[in-house]
Design a protein around this nucleic acid. Structure first.
Lengths: 191, 191
DNA sequence: ACTTATCAATCTATCGATAGATAGACAAAA
DNA sequence: TTTTGTCTATCTATCGATAGATTGATAAGT
């Protein structure tokens, strides 16, 4: 799918790393260029504008995420397993030397983003809560919850995870993330 | 206490508004100057550096917050009332035409901030979870929870609120925030 | 009362650095 | 020969920050 090769992929990697540490407004084309060993003009060759680049980074990140997550209705994987994988993906992102989830930082900076990047951010939150809602829907706990209710529950979990990443990183303690997830589990919010 | 008057206060107001919408790296001294009707050099007169200004904004915001919250052990206010006030403060921030909690956006941008601003961010998360932990400690539910456990629970609630703000704003729907808080209540995480 | 000195707050003008972006030349590959 | 990727060179706009002049108000000295 997003199997961009060569310099383009390298630039995407660098840009992603920057966004996830210092945010969209915290790096420049020159930063990327010097790290990729080319000139900033060459970065523009691959990605005409910064908004273009930002959207590409977001799209690739989301595509990877959902590829790893797989089918939420896969009968071979229990809701429990899938939810753990979901949480684990967030934890893994934070564990890459204190990098944030891409969409946590983009979400916070939302108003400062070019429209095409904003679109990707919204799209991710929609898709991810949809995905998680489908998983939650499989744990039929007697009451048949509506799609809207399931999606709201999913969003609540996602919000908690995003917030947990942020607080954990600001304090440079991964354990804070784990504590928060623990509370999520103990409150039976999660399968 | 923080009764800064005149232009300084006006600049702080403008800077706070900008940080809470586009983040620390999303505005310039010139932006502030033109809105305050002065020149950017005059902004530097009041706040020598941007880091200085950022820290001042953060400090004032935090001071106001804790002044409004009051004493977490005030016997005249139930834990329930205090927790609601706490949640309400976050909701109110979001409700000011889609502005974020200052520390949510600063937390996300953390690695891009000058040290003095980072310090204020950490300090806020510390103080606010301390405050909330004291409130939670008053609802002695049989088991005597340790201070560390209470603080972890407090952090979990705060993380959830910050995440809720972020997700709600990215989707421009205040109702998402309310949904998430609803789940928080239903899961009995909150008094 | 008049003068002098100080101060807070602003200005103009400018600094070096950097931002994102473009034009056009060049070389290698297809 | 056309495409692909990179380069040099440059543009305009803006960044945070500083220097030095100017204003009006206040205070102190005579």
């Amino acid at each position: 799918m997003y199997q961009v090769t060569g310099k383009s992929a390298e630039i995407l990697d660098l840009a992603e790393r920057h966004v996830r540490t210092v945010g969209y407004n915290g790096f420049s084309f020159r930063d990327l260029a010097s790290e990729a060993g080319i000139k900033s003009a060459s970065v523009h060759y691959h990605f005409p504008t910064k908004g273009n680049l930002g959207a590409a980074v977001a799209r690739r990140y989301a595509d990877r995420f959902f590829e790893i997550m797989g089918d939420p209705l896969n009968p071979k994987k229990s809701p429990r397993i899938l939810t753990e994988a979901f949480i684990g993906a967030f934890r893994g992102a934070l564990n890459e030397d204190g990098r944030m989830c891409l969409f946590c930082i983009l979400g916070a900076e939302f108003a400062a983003l070019p429209p095409e990047v904003q679109h990707e951010v919204r799209s991710f939150f929609n898709k991810s809560s949809e995905w998680l809602a489908q998983v939650l829907g499989r744990t039929a706990t007697g009451t048949a919850a509506s799609d809207a209710e399931l999606k709201a529950r999913a969003r609540s979990i996602i919000a908690c995870l995003e917030g947990a990443m942020m607080v954990a990183r600001a304090n440079d303690q991964l354990s804070i993330f784990d504590d928060i997830v623990g509370h999520l589990r103990r409150a039976h919010v999660v399968p």
